[in-house]
Computed example of a mutant assay.
Amino acid sequence: MSNPDARVIAEVLEDAYGLPGALLERLPIGQVTVNYRARLGRRVLFVKHYQSGADLAAEQAAIGQSRLAGEHRVPVASVLPSIGGQDITQRGPVAVSVWEWRPGTVVQDGLNPVQQRAAGAVLGRLHNAFADHPAGRRPSTKLDKWMRPNVGRLEETIDKLLGIAGERAQQDTFDEEALRTLAERHAVLPRIPDLLAGLPPLTSQVLHGDYSAVNLLFDGDELTAVLDFLPPDPFLAAYELGRIAFDVRTVVLDEDWITSGTRLVAAYLETNPHLPTADVTACARAALLQLLTSLYGVKQHYLRPGLLQDDLDEFWLLRHAASMRLLERLDEVEAALTQVARHR
Rank of each mutant, 00 (worst) to 15 (best):
R137S: 13
K160P: 00
A321R: 14
R7T: 12
P193K: 11
L227Q: 10
G92S: 08
A245H: 02
I63S: 12
D233F: 02
S204M: 11
R43N: 09
L202F: 06
G70A: 05
P93F: 01
D210C: 05
L308Q: 14
V280S: 01
R191N: 03
I63E: 13
L80C: 12
V114K: 14
R168Y: 01
A57W: 02
S260W: 02
E270G: 01
L317F: 02
D175L: 10
R102Q: 15
K142R: 15
R304V: 00
P200T: 11
H274Y: 04
E71W: 01
G64E: 14
L196N: 09
V226K: 07
G242I: 06
E328G: 06
R125V: 00
I9E: 03
V280N: 03
G209S: 08
L196T: 09
L317A: 07
L23G: 06
E71C: 07
G64D: 15
L207E: 11
T105S: 10
P200D: 11
G110D: 06
S260H: 05
S140M: 04
Q51N: 06
T250D: 05
L217M: 10
I88Y: 04
P190H: 12
H133F: 05
H208P: 14
D194H: 07
D55G: 04
A131D: 08
T203W: 05
H274C: 09
A266R: 14
I158V: 14
D228I: 04
R325W: 02
D256T: 04
I244L: 15
R73I: 00
R243P: 01
G84R: 15
L264Q: 13
V214A: 12
G120T: 13
A237W: 07
A135G: 10
P4K: 07
R43E: 15
R319W: 00
D194S: 12
E156Y: 00
Q171V: 04
Q65A: 09
Y211S: 09
R342K: 15
S66V: 12
N272E: 13
G53Y: 06
L217T: 08
R319D: 08
A54M: 05
I63P: 12
C283G: 10
Q108G: 03
A62D: 02
A69S: 09
G166T: 05
L289I: 15
L24Q: 10
E332K: 06
L24C: 12
G110H: 04
